[in-house]
Amino acid sequence: MNQPVQGGAVVELSEVSMYYGSRKVTDAINLELRRGEVLSIVGPSGCGKTTLLRAVAGLNRPGSGEIRVDGVPVAGAAPEGVSMVFQHFGLFPWKTVEANIAYPLVVRGVRKKDAVEQTRRLVEMVGLSGFENSYPHQLSGGMQQRTGLARALAVNPRVLLMDEPFGALDAQTREVLQFELLDLWATSAVTTLFVTHSIEEAVLFGDRIAVLRGQPSSVVELIDVNLPKPRERSVMATPEFARLREHVWNLVMSNEVPA
């Protein structure tokens, strides 16, 4: 169970329509993520990005269509090896950093000695050594999200779902964590769905970018990001980056600002 799955899972969304009551939020979304691919999802507020992500986690059921992780349909339960990083961190306030990170291991019955060791490794990886016994409220936002990331990585996920993970952080902390995330992807490929409001972030991270729009929303364009991998922050200075950013910006904003 603790062997990293090589390259992450294949995630398929076929004809996925999501509803709240009788209201259709997304209309027949088709997406296929390759192993280890990072797919950025952008789109105007309320277009159903969070709803789609929750569906992959098994939190919401599609009204029609199907989601498969490595060919296995997601139905009801959270698929094994699918981890989520939350916008507001989603940490248990009554658990220390260490206990939060170890929780998914404890639940899975990992032997205590292994869980302790694994937790220590993760704490070190996200740079929280010395804060193992702090409670979330004693940490800065950036440190809390590092804890959230470590907890998500504890189970060696095949799929990482991130819903505006840096949305609640200040600009500087955000950049530091972006850097660390790039580092993570460089060392271990995990299939990632990354929802963000930051177009720069979408281009910086994504192997592809899915632009959602409409009510109900659909994928208006699936953009290939041909920037060198492993990605480094220096790509942000390239003309290709600027071109992609403009392109995505126009797609996202075309309905939001008058021409």
Binding site: R54, A57, G58, A78, V82, F86, Q87, F92, V107, R108
Partner: peptide, 18 residues
């Protein structure tokens, strides 16, 4: 109870009995 915590519990596979 914050919805995010309920979601986290679900995604982390917190067993029903716990």
């Amino acid at each position: 109870i914050a919805r995010e915590l309920e979601d986290a519990a679900f995604v982390l596979h917190m067993p029903k009995r716990r």
